[in-house]
Amino acid sequence: MVIAGVLITTKPGQAPFVAASLGASPHVQLVGGDGSERLAAVVSRESGEALEAWAEELLRDDERILGVYPTFVGHDPE
């Protein structure tokens, strides 16, 4: 399992709405935000490739999201 800290940046003022839609996802845990255009989240996926795919999907499908930046990537062998 790959566990990553990510910073998600959005269009101005959109962060709370993006947070609401991401909150439903089982592998995303929101840990903070600036209330406007930045979100901090912990993402767990089965592999680095899946993590990449998730980030790509997010960028492709959600107009409000401008960037997904990894701040930490750890590997849990369990």
Binding site: I3, A4, G5, V6, L7, Q29, V31, G32, G33, D34, R38, A40, A41, V42, V43, Y69, T71, F72, G74
Partner: peptide, 10 residues
């Protein structure tokens, strides 16, 4: 650790 790093990046 992941959460702390993401928060720091805010």
């Amino acid at each position: 650790a992941a959460a702390a790093s993401a928060l720091a990046a805010l």
